[in-house]
Design a protein around this nucleic acid. Sequence first.
DNA 1: TCCGGTTTTGAACATTGTGTGACGCCGTAT
DNA 2: ATACGGCGTCACACAATGTTCAAAACCGGA
Lengths: 237, 237
Amino acid sequence: MSTGNRILVVDDEERIRRLLRMYLEKEGYEIEEAEDGESALRMALGEDFDLIVLDLMLPGIDGMEVCARLRQQKATPVLMLTAKGEEINRVQGFEVGADDYVVKPFSPREVIFRIKAILRRSSATAFLSKDTNTSNNIVFPHLVIEHDAHRVTASGQEVNLTPKEYELLHYLASSPDKVFSREELLKDVWNYDFFGDLRTVDTHVKRLREKLNRVSAEAASMITTVWGVGYKLEAAK
Amino acid sequence: MSTGNRILVVDDEERIRRLLRMYLEKEGYEIEEAEDGESALRMALGEDFDLIVLDLMLPGIDGMEVCARLRQQKATPVLMLTAKGEEINRVQGFEVGADDYVVKPFSPREVIFRIKAILRRSSATAFLSKDTNTSNNIVFPHLVIEHDAHRVTASGQEVNLTPKEYELLHYLASSPDKVFSREELLKDVWNYDFFGDLRTVDTHVKRLREKLNRVSAEAASMITTVWGVGYKLEAAK
DNA sequence: TCCGGTTTTGAACATTGTGTGACGCCGTAT
DNA sequence: ATACGGCGTCACACAATGTTCAAAACCGGA
């Protein structure tokens, strides 16, 4: 798991830095932190990071600026964090050289996923490699999840899922056979500042099964309840 | 067994500290205790522990606060204890940097297990290592227990177990060939504040054998009654 | 702003797991 | 062979947990 990837996390809110550090370290990344634009820029230029998570709104030099200045000297990938209200000018953002965006409040799962995608892309272009090789597809006998296309296919037929349904399925599918408690699911799939009822998970699982079942009983039955523990997605029964 | 790991146990109730100390020392850990937030913080910062077991509800500085302040200086892993009623703010808890939670009343087995998992994880990221490498699977000729998937397979066929049945089997399987008295089982597998009938163990063993036997006589016969003493799980007959 | 769809919640209901005590069997010691 | 005590089994009551449904809250787009 330890890829030896170094990530710089830049945000003025400490709790966000802490949250990201925690989740990212669990994934085996090495984390450095900065809380303002100046030090972020200094660190980003002075050391070699594999990726920078950069909040848009920063005291002093803001994220956009940091990104732009960084780009004049380095190509370090950047994942931008933007608060919900901040209507970012996406175009402007991409001009400035950000590799991807995540809006706050984000779900931990989302961020991890994007980061992995960026790193995969950037390490992929370092060698010669087909992009399809490093695809995001998860394939089971009766269930295919194409992440890029955001498309789920059960026994050959496409299934239309709501965002949360999709995220839930995708999360379960990312670690097939592993049981997740409702708490874990709520923690990782839902936004980090959402504090809701555990039953919410049940409901989503129900609808997910329902939709899958309309098309493929096999696919639906992959989502298994483990009594007293939680849910899992079984690779094969 | 002596791993030389040092653990700080923080709880205001003495019986909890004693209980944890007892179980943890049996596992070869070296234990220190603290009964309030202030001394906990002092010790946690002043000395190097491999892990801290931290009750949420403490006189003075509470667990959340201790964890947060600790995190500003150190990355020592933290296992949080929370009473059942206390609706913890999960998000806040994780922001604060706790590595895992256990709700009271817990079963000793549960706590030991979580602690080992955390320590494995934290020592794992120190090296380069695949997470899958340090798997939780227990494998016998006719019986496989995959802990992450919470799945038991007897002679190749999956067996559906209830939570208690599973816990009992997993506990026995963790120390194959060791005989456990009914008292021990009741004490370790059940919640620490549960005082029930010894027959309860019998009933669960019965159900366990029954379910295993449906699928594999060999697997079922591994659970052996030792007359006048208790039960054990035999690695091979 | 209103409308339509999505997400979340809460409550009722259904299912499943758990603990208990009684009873009869079986192994062991005499 | 017999008596004694431990053990396995069972059925029941009750508790815990999962499921479903419908309605409310929320959100984004027209």
